[in-house]
């Protein structure tokens, strides 16, 4: 958890973004290169995405079927930690217990990161638009954009701008949406128990609808620093068309999630 380092180099969201804007504008005037993740489309078109089949319509408000503090590893058991991973996990667990490590996602409401956000007990909305799939999470008002049918950014670009939610590109494999993500920062845990990952982590998610009103996300995690081999976790959601996402401001009272299986609301 490199919070202090980040705080010291990040002059503040506003100032840093302002500097980025200057750099961007300057670079563009000089004809320089900047990672262009998605250009706007000046041509007129239909802004509404039409799913080719009902199974490829994954848009809507989804809500996890259950919550777990630990990553729901496919087949059960523990993630296959390397020695370094075991040591880091032990440090994280001890630090979270004695307070020397702050769970920033819960106390400062920074993004949970992937895969932890996938199992969160609040509803989220998936929105398919031409060229993009967007996860809008109620929790911590996290937005996760996924660019469709484009190559992943270069290793250099991913290293320059690591994100909590990583950089995601996706394509359809039949009726399964395959999301590949890389370029994560090191400031998140894999789950609430403190399972570690490095910034070398990459993930592949396979998202499909087992039924009309259910969604499944099986994520395969590869991180040679922390894990001896790739392993997978599975998340399942129900469609909730009656739910509207609500505001989420850290520390305020939020919607009741006590009915979500596995949730323990602190007293």
């Amino acid at each position: 958890m490199a919070r202090r380092f980040v705080c010291s180099i990040g002059i503040a969201g506003i100032a840093a973004a302002a500097l980025l804007m200057v750099a961007s504008a300057d670079a563009q005037r000089r004809g320089g290169e900047r990672p262009k993740e998605e250009a706007s489309a000046p041509a007129a078109g239909n802004p509404i995405y039409t799913p080719p089949t009902p199974a490829m319509n994954i848009s809507g408000v989804w809500w996890t079927q259950s919550y777990s503090r630990k990553l729901p590893v496919v087949g059960g058991g523990e993630p296959p930690l390397t020695d370094k991973g075991k040591a880091q996990y032990a440090r994280n667990v001890a630090g979270l217990n004695d307070g020397s490590i702050v769970d920033e996602a819960r106390h400062l409401c920074v993004p949970d990161g992937v895969p932890r956000i996938l199992g969160n007990p609040y509803p989220f909305q998936l929105i398919q638009t031409p060229g993009q799939v967007t996860f809008v999470y109620e929790l911590n008002h996290v937005i996760r954009p996924v660019v469709m049918d484009k190559p992943q950014l270069s290793a250099n670009q991913l290293e320059v701008a690591p994100y909590y939610s990583g950089h995601s590109v996706a394509h359809w494999d039949g009726e399964t949406l395959v999301i590949e993500t890389a370029g994560f920062n090191e400031k998140t845990f894999l789950d609430a128990s403190g399972a570690p990952h490095s910034d070398a982590m990459t993930t592949v998610e396979r998202i499909r609808k087992p039924g009309d009103k259910t969604l499944e996300d099986v994520i395969t995690i590869t991180d040679g620093e922390m894990f001896t081999q790739p392993f997978s976790a599975r998340f399942a959601y129900d469609l909730h068309p009656e739910v509207r996402l609500e505001d989420y401001v850290c520390g305020e009272k939020h919607r009741d999630i006590s009915m979500v299986k596995g949730v323990v609301v602190p007293k």
């Binding site: 980040v6 705080c7 990040g10 002059i11 503040a12 969201g13 840093a16 973004a17 980025l20 804007m21 961007s24 900047r34 990672p35 262009k36 993740e37 998605e38 250009a39 706007s40 920033e104 400062l108 409401c109 920074v110 993004p111 954009p145 701008a161 994100y163 909590y164 939610s165 850290c250």
Partner: peptide, 12 residues
């Protein structure tokens, strides 16, 4: 055309 960036206020 600058592209989407992750800008997390609470990070700082």
């Amino acid at each position: 055309t600058r592209g989407i960036r992750e800008l997390i206020c609470a990070e700082n």
